[in-house]
Design a protein around this nucleic acid. Structure first.
Lengths: 217, 217
DNA sequence: ACCTGAACACCGTTCAAGT
DNA sequence: ACCTGAACACCGTTCAAGT
């Protein structure tokens, strides 16, 4: 009964009860152990979440290395999202577990950086870009889940929605009113791709600018 | 003693003890009240956090409307970040409080959407872009704070860092090793601007593509 | 209408003590 | 080396009861 077994059980528990339900005591119970015993194998709950975040990222596969840097990053972004969608509240776990430390998350960072260096970005730009890309995917997942939960609530509660519609009818927010249908639609696959492409377009522009400055004047 | 006073006290408490220390019981104590009384004015803690998120966003000022759409969004992004940096754990509060509902956050969304529609984006693209921009700023703040905390810990603990350096020396992550200095550097102002510009560049590209398709073939 | 007492069902973490 | 009992210092939330 080692650290790995604990993390696997935690992952199971996460899928069943979500991040808010994942407690040291429940995890211990599921392992047939007392809560205090966990602290022999794991520093504290924060440490456990770090290990959990790394375990969640384990299945991410490397994209085909013969692809262009852009296609590789695009594939990696979608693959990353696909893997995170495999576990409940995965976005929140990742967002709340701090900078990547475990081997699987480091491998992911490595893949992104390698593609960016390959593309010809400066070291500084590559570092920045890697953060932006990682942040984008992670928070997208957090919001995706949050919106899904909000929509669920609306169905039963419908209190928040009325508040919203009221605000729209007041005429104070004309643009929101005009786009209401598009904003409420979840359309997540499309939206995810939109953001990813915008980011990659922006990075390409940046790269072209850097090159022009380097070769030109 | 109304809802507004409660939210103001919660904001004070947040700045003093951070999101993890912000409990209903402590908040009640600070108001000279028993915890149960809060539930007369506020549905539950989640509701309180929603109100808090809106209050945090209140000071955001509208950018000069004579500027171009791009300059307006750039200014708004920096203004938003400035305001969020004014309160401890503001990024986490925003990220954990779900879709915007309060008047101040709606006003912010309105400003972003107005700029995008003004620029000529389709309704669908404008809605997507607004989400991406909002997400970018929010998670940037979350990570900014998380990294700051991690660096603090490193100073005293230094256990995680050794783990990291060890991983680098193994040769498994050559790109990370090559960029180690850039990744560790916090450089947050520069990094924030980098991401913002990349996003706006990407959006400009997208807009040009849409126009070409509309007028061209 | 607004507040309290008292309880319910939980938390994370520590630490002496067991085997 | 690994686990437990028992405690400490907390949580969010409910609800009958007070004024």
């Amino acid at each position: 009964l080692d650290q790995e077994q604990i993390v696997l059980a935690a992952l199971d528990l996460l899928d069943e009860v979500g991040l808010d339900g994942l407690s040291m005591r429940r995890l211990a119970e599921r392992l047939g152990i007392k809560a205090a015993s966990l602290y022999w194998h794991v520093r504290n709950k924060e440490h456990l979440l770090q290990l959990l975040a790394d375990a969640i990222c384990a299945p991410v596969r490397e994209p085909d290395p013969t692809l262009s840097w852009r296609k590789r990053l695009e594939a990696l972004g979608q693959e990353y999202r696909r893997v995170l969608r495999g576990h409940r509240d995965a976005g929140r776990v990742l967002a709340s577990s701090g900078p990547p430390t475990g081997p699987h998350r480091l491998r992911l960072v490595e893949m992104v950086l390698a593609a960016l260096l390959d593309a010809g970005f400066t070291h500084g730009d590559a570092a920045h870009a890697a953060f932006v890309l990682n942040d984008y995917v992670t928070l997208f997942l957090v919001e995706e889940a949050a919106y899904a939960r909000a929509v669920e609530k609306q169905a039963s509660d419908s209190g928040e929605l009325s508040n919203w519609r009221e605000a729209l009818r007041s005429g104070e927010f004309p643009s929101i009113a005009a786009l209401a249908d598009h904003l409420v639609e979840i359309q997540t696959d499309e939206r995810f791709l939109f953001g990813l492409e915008v980011l990659l377009n922006g990075l390409e522009t940046r790269l072209a600018q850097t090159r022009a400055r380097a070769s030109g004047c």
